[in-house]
């Protein structure tokens, strides 16, 4: 088992008056390699926006490394090590790749070692080293995802959340990114990967959460397979 990294209970949140999350419970321990799947529009992004402080939690609690972080400011939560690479690679578009990465390492703890981390990131994504002076606006979709992931790494995360890192990418690029993410996971950075495609996660995760209509409907641990009939039923509509 090991220490609890993230402990969410009864989380309710939404937009305006409409709830999207209807009481999410999730506990992750240090030894887990977690992944989250679920159909489009069922609250995966909303869940992560809420635990990282961008959206308000209406009810429930979020604990990270034993500390209650419910509804703390996003910048504070991030500084504790819960780092969120948001969906849709929203970068600092008018800045260079290097400036984006430096800003990823803005927080004091990360800033102290930003030169070393930058080298490690460039080793992982040599393409970013070539493009370091180029403005983020001019990058391809795949390169932007690389920057988004790397910004997260620059922050020295204790838990790195990647929200659909391969959204809209070609199969070839998807494979490339999967290999890079595998290296990140191997290096010991706990990474929670969000995907719509369970196939993508099969080699990256040992624990899979399935979100449906704003709830965690299934929590599949090590050894259990994706063939799990409940998932098949809910996800693909066939039993």
């Amino acid at each position: 088992m090991g220490d609890v990294t993230l402990d969410v209970s009864g989380l309710v949140s939404g937009y305006g008056r409409m709830p999207v999350l209807h009481g999410v419970d999730m506990t992750i321990t240090a030894s887990d390699k977690p992944g989250l799947i679920g159909p489009n529009g069922h609250g995966k992004t909303t869940f992560f926006r809420t635990i990282s402080g961008l959206n308000r939690a209406w009810e429930g609690t979020v604990r990270f490394m034993g500390e209650d972080i419910t509804n703390r400011p996003a910048a504070q939560i991030m500084r504790l090590g819960l780092v969120h690479a948001p969906q849709g690679n929203t970068l600092f578009r008018e800045m260079s790749v290097e400036e984006n990465l430096l800003l990823g390492g803005f927080a004091p703890r990360a800033r102290a070692v930003h030169k070393t981390t930058l080298e490690q990131v460039f080793e992982l994504f040599p393409r970013l080293a070539e493009r370091r002076r180029q403005s983020a606006r001019t990058l391809s979709g795949g390169e932007r995802q690389m920057v988004a992931i790397s910004c997260g790494l620059m922050a020295l995360p204790k838990l790195l959340v990647l929200d659909e890192p391969t959204l809209g990418l070609s199969p070839k690029l998807k494979m490339e990114l999967r290999d890079a993410i595998a290296k990140i996971v191997e290096s010991g950075v706990q990474t929670m990967i969000v995907e719509q495609d369970p196939e993508f996660l099969s080699t990256l995760t040992t624990r899979l959460f399935f979100m449906s209509e704003g709830r965690i409907e299934a929590d599949i641990g090590d050894g259990q397979s994706l063939e799990h009939s409940r998932i098949r039923e809910m996800y693909f509509g066939v039993a």
Binding site: G53, A75, F92, L103
Partner: peptide, 10 residues
Amino acid sequence: QNREFAELSG
């Protein structure tokens, strides 16, 4: 340029 991403960057 991006207030939300700035917050996520600490």
